[in-house]
């Protein structure tokens, strides 16, 4: 509903304010580092959710695009001496190119084929990062220079956090406008019924390719910022388990929900830290929580909460039917 758009843009402003206040409320490098990671995971998830939650395509290799962005920034800045912004753009171009070629070859097939192709491709990328030791430092990873913009060097965790927060706000705004545009509606239509969408003149292959490329670029940007924020990259960031984590984040937060992407990313980033006190029981408990959320909120946290909020709202307005916002959308991936 586009009547919701201004409301969503207000939410966007609230998010920006909250992100800006965080360093003042919690001026602690450890918290800032976690917040940086959560913001960047959220950027990846917002892009991935456009692909899975709206267009209904599953990707099991999105961490590879994160890795491409991270290593493009790392290698181009550290070994070639290119300025970070340009390196980040180069990473985007490489990710977009790979995504385009993959989509063209695989997306014409229906079913879980994209999932399998992204899985295979993602693992290959992470193997390459592990093996090309001369270029990437292999399994030990490599260090990355600081981010700088037009010669202004940035310092400390603050800078990394600032970049991540700006990226998140931009990603949220982009996604909201995108979803409520003709293109976004076409993608959601594809997710609901390909036959009907095609009959309305929507070029399905083109739209799926487009959204796949976009989601790859979101992941790539997040990867580049991560490289500079952490000043270090390792192949584990591009690994299969990271890809699976991203999928888990959007399903838990809520498919087809921008807010859900942020909630899922934040929760799964913080959960292992919150459970750090349990030491050996950490993995076990994380898995258990994942299962419980899926059993009790199969549509994801945000859509479930919105639905119960709506039900409460409707109860006091028996004749008024509240409009559904895009963030209330649920669908199969």
């Amino acid at each position: 509903m586009t009547s919701d758009t201004p409301r969503q843009l207000i939410a966007c402003a609230v998010l920006a304010t909250a992100l800006a206040l965080l360093p003042i409320v919690a001026p602690n490098p450890y918290y800032l580092d976690l917040a940086t990671k959560a913001c960047l995971a959220a950027v990846v998830c917002i892009g991935l959710n456009l692909l899975s939650g709206y267009a209904g395509q599953l990707s099991l290799g999105h961490a590879a695009f994160f890795g491409v962005g991270a290593y493009a920034s790392a290698i181009l800045c550290a070994k070639v001496g290119i300025t970070p912004v340009v390196a980040m753009l180069a990473g985007c171009l490489i990710s977009a190119g790979i995504a385009y070629v993959m989509a063209r070859t695989v997306l014409r097939l229906k079913g879980h084929y994209l999932a399998m192709a992204t899985l295979a491709f993602g693992v290959i990328i992470s193997i390459v990062l592990n093996r090309e030791v001369a270029l990437t430092g292999g399994p030990d990873g490599m260090s990355v220079p600081r981010f700088n913009l037009f010669g202004y060097r940035t310092t400390g965790v603050w800078a990394g956090y600032g970049l991540a927060a700006v990226a998140l706000v931009l990603a949220v705004r982009t996604a909201i406008v995108f979803v409520n545009s003709r293109v976004g509606r076409a993608l959601r239509a594809i997710g609901d019924s390909e036959v009907a969408a095609e009959g309305l003149g929507i070029d399905i292959a083109r739209y799926k390719t487009g959204v796949f490329v976009i989601s790859a670029v979101f992941a790539s940007v997040a990867g580049s910022i991560f490289a500079h924020a952490d000043r270090f990259v390792s192949p584990a960031e591009a690994g299969f388990m990271r890809s699976v984590e991203f999928v888990a984040m959007i399903v838990i937060g809520g498919l087809g929900s921008v807010a859900g992407s942020i909630v899922g990313a934040t929760l799964l980033t913080l959960l292992p830290q919150l459970l750090a006190g349990f030491d050996h029981y950490r993995h076990f408990l994380t898995g258990l929580i994942l299962i419980l959320i899926m059993i009790f909120m199969p549509a994801g946290i945000v859509p479930t909460l919105l639905a119960s909020g709506r039900a409460l709202h409707d109860r006091y307005r028996p004749f008024g039917r509240s409009a559904r916002s895009v963030t209330g959308r649920t669908s199969e991936g």
């Binding site: 899975s52 950490r282 076990f284 994380t286 994942l290 199969p298």
Partner: peptide, 28 residues
């Protein structure tokens, strides 16, 4: 079986959670 009418994706996430639990249990 508890996640009734769940999509295939929800089931996949449950198996991911189960995998984590089993790894965790083995670690414990």
């Amino acid at each position: 079986a508890q996640a009734k009418n769940a999509s295939v994706l929800t089931i996949i996430i449950i198996t991911i959670g189960a995998g984590m639990m089993l790894r965790g249990a083995a670690e414990i």
